[in-house]
Nucleic acid binder design. Structure first.
Lengths: 240, 240
DNA sequence: CGTTGTCGTCGTACAATGTACGGGCACTCT
DNA sequence: AGAGTGCCCGTACATTGTACGACGACAACG
């Protein structure tokens, strides 16, 4: 039940709107985020939203910034060691994205240029403050890490969405497709991985690369590799 | 002009449909890809498409696989050195994604599980065939590289889209927002980068991090860091 | 107190989209 | 000739984003 038409209500705020939209997306999926739905959830008329956002794209941007707010780490957690700091921020980022997997369906809207994006940037800069290199190298490092985390988490989330669709028929037909293609002999290097029983091999591989434990380990190893390589190249350059 | 109703025409194929849809997205943007538009471009009735794809999502998946076909490298380019092979595949991937930036707006649909995705997988496996490690490590490596390339290119493409909107008003207001936020003193580490003139500093930084030359260099350095780190960790593990 | 203007609110209307449904034509096989 | 099969597509409908304009509440001012 809404109030009288024309009534003054405790005015909405952009943050509030963004937060509600995020809740809807979390609960009912990204496609459930329509202007009408968000407005209804806020006990407001649909068109009222348009006094706070220019259009739906801006609402999506708002949602993006809401999430950027979630990947902030409390300042006490940041010590003097840059590697641990970077790792902590990276983990928080992955966690936040995994909490809101639909974020990747909202790509195409700028994410990370809002206020909270700026805060994340500041935090990243703070994380590497003890690293004595040029500002450019600092930027390159945090960009690199962000890119890796983004790519990794995107794949992870898509894979989980795919599995969660729960359509065993789809899984079955996908597996059958895989099996028949593999049998064609066009994929020697892939086939070599599954000596003999293709189906069992694929299932083993899927399992090995999808469990949470396994994903965490791969995430950490990739991050370590990235940081190790970056550090090694730094030292090499300094020496010359 | 279409032919008579009911007329037999050289039947459409899924590949053909996907390719046309990709052309439309390239030329007029992702939002221009509607069932009606694609059908019209193929001189077919709208509903005809539904005999080749279950729904629009499947069309998007088709488009994704079309692009996956573009990031294949000719076999002769793959030598015996795994690092160079991996780098070549990575560059081809980045190039293909940059040719079709809208790909990132189509996320949420599985990309990479179609036939061409499988071919890319095979090619990646072929690229690292000379690396004498366990299959699991091989998989981890190519996954890592794909993730990095994905994340890097995504950021790159979004940034270019943002710049290309060409709305100087938006750029101006963004800059003003940045400037006022920076002035608030809440971002000490970021501010320290721009001693004095914030606006000039931001513009210099934007330029430094957006030119094609600069992006190429960052891409290569990130890739090198990733591979260096991975290789070093391999050796360390083997030694112990 | 009346007038005027501004601001937040929203109902209505419209164009565009995805797609369910059902019917129609050309062709193949019996 | 008749029956079946596989493309083909027009129509219809629900749902979406959003342009337009009206209406009420409040503040400022006379």
């Amino acid at each position: 039940m809404r109030e009288e038409p024309g009534a003054r209500r405790a005015g909405l705020s952009r943050e509030q709107i963004g937060a509600r939209a995020v809740e809807i997306a979390d609960a009912e999926g990204f496609d459930a985020v329509s202007m009408r739905h968000v407005a209804r959830e806020l006990d407001a008329g649909t068109m009222t939203l348009y006094h706070y956002v220019r259009n739906k794209d801006e609402l999506l941007t708002l949602m993006g910034d809401t999430i950027m707010g979630e990947l902030l780490v409390s300042d006490e957690e940041l010590s003097g060691e840059w590697r641990q700091n970077v790792a902590k921020v990276a983990r928080a980022t992955r966690r936040a994205f995994k909490r809101h997997p639909w974020i990747f369906e909202a790509m195409g809207q700028p994410v990370g240029s809002g206020p909270n994006g700026l805060r994340h940037f500041e935090q990243s800069m703070a994380a590497v403050r003890a690293l004595r290199v040029s500002p450019r190298d600092r930027l390159e490092l945090i960009g690199l890490v962000d890119d890796y985390v983004f790519g990794f988490t995107l794949r992870e989330v898509l894979q989980e969405m795919y599995e969660a669709e729960g359509d065993p028929d789809m899984t079955e037909s996908g597996l059958a497709f895989f099996e028949s293609e593999l049998g064609s002999g066009e994929y020697p290097h892939v086939s070599k991985m599954f000596r003999g029983d293709i189906r069992a091999g694929v299932e083993r591989l899927m399992e090995e690369f999808s469990g949470e434990r396994s994903n965490n380990r791969r995430f950490e190893r990739g991050l370590k590799a990235l940081l190790d390589g970056f550090e090694a190249n730094l030292k090499k350059r300094k020496r010359s």
